[in-house]
Design a protein around this nucleic acid. Structure first.
Lengths: 220, 220
DNA sequence: CTTATTTTTTAGAACTATCTAATTTAATTT
DNA sequence: AAATTAAATTAGATAGTTCTAAAAAATAAG
């Protein structure tokens, strides 16, 4: 079964929205997430339904089928492997990879991805800390919570970011809150939800609720 | 100026046909070379003319403009760099790279190509011996002749192949006529144009006129 | 130098993807 | 429960790429 680039993008968006814990994925949500109009989404949902990658009932909503899940995870696998390539091999900054990976993920060649995976030494996570599905679509996800949800004196390690926008990533670079950093919550301000943390046992840092909400931590 | 994938493919085909020494490139030639119908070519020529990458007069023919030349060479540069990547880094066989490189060449990112070029150590030739244009579109082509045109006792080095079809490349692999091999013409058969050569001073090889015509040699 | 042949182009249709505007269905409010 | 609002879908257009079939132009042949 072959999907077009547009179909792959829609399916990926649907997968991501489903993962975000939302009970059901709405036409408007999809439109917003891929920056298109709801009318276009309706059209595409009908098509994806016909191709049986989603189960679709007009006006009622949709559900990804096992087939759709497999295909979505394949695309995500490709996207994340390319991101690792761009950062590890071509020395892209982690805020520069998304756009290019969006293109590379649609290259069709099973051999290419197998070889790329081996070349990169079978990475388990992409530069933003998101897990890379294996060839069968299995994802080894780590239990993790938002930094904002941690309690005072709790320790952990930054393992991923929710927001991958260049602006956010560049901010993290600037303050030294990179993936892998060990942190400890020193204080939390009730009033605005901001947090004070110790990074790598040497540097203290204040961050707003907004920032802390977009940093994912593996607590220890 | 931005070209679509289809436009890039047409322009590339036109460039290659122009290079083949043909006085003028015909609609039918283009159609044959990219496996489409002449009607589709006519349509596209009109469009490429409007975009001023070719100069086009209906029924009379076309000529690539300097702009078109630049864009075609950019695409060819990308294609050949990706081929080097696939062979050198991902260990593709030289007969497996074309199809994937056809897709990769359309990825849009100047940074990506600059970085890839550096990562591959600024290669000057692709796995088939074809020269890789630099970022400005300059091509350093080597003077070379078909093996078929060499005289008896003449020596040289295989530097490229004209035909890059998997069947031909696999044949060359089998007989050990790889790029870089030093050869000497031992004998030529008038009757059928076949050639007997010495490869790397240790192995003699018979090859048909057809094969010898598709191997390019730098004579010494 | 007409006629035939080949080449090239146009006309019209199909398919993908997208949009705006209008309509339909579902959910909310009073 | 009827009326309002919000969400989702359909209808109709546009743009890109490709095709078949028909027409037009250029070339070759008698």
């Amino acid at each position: 079964m072959e999907l077009t680039t547009a179909e792959e993008n829609y399916l990926k968006a649907i997968y991501h929205l489903s993962e975000e814990g939302k009970k059901s994925v709405s036409t408007n949500d999809i439109a917003a997430s891929i920056q298109t109009k709801p009318a276009s989404v309706s059209d595409m949902l009908r098509k994806l339904g016909e191709k049986e990658v989603i189960q679709y009932r007009k006006y009622y909503g949709l559900q990804i089928t096992p087939l759709g899940m497999r295909l979505a995870l394949q695309t995500i696998r490709k996207h994340r492997l390319w991101e690792v390539f761009l950062v590890d091999k071509l020395h892209f900054a982690w805020d520069e990879v998304h756009e290019v990976a969006e293109q590379l993920e649609h290259i069709q060649s099973t051999l290419l991805i197998e070889r790329l995976d081996a070349y990169l030494n079978y990475p388990k996570f992409d530069p933003h800390g998101d897990p890379i599905p294996d060839a069968f679509g299995d994802v080894r996800s780590r239990p993790r919570i938002a930094l904002q949800e941690m309690g005072i004196d709790q320790s952990g390690q930054i393992v991923a970011v929710k927001d991958s926008s260049p602006a956010f990533l560049r901010y993290l670079d600037k303050v030294g809150a990179y993936i892998g950093a060990r942190i400890k919550v020193l204080d939390k301000v009730e009033f605005d939800g901001s947090v004070e943390i110790l990074v790598d046992q040497k540097k203290t840092l204040f961050m707003s609720k907004d920032v802390a909400n977009n940093i994912l931590v593996l607590t220890s």
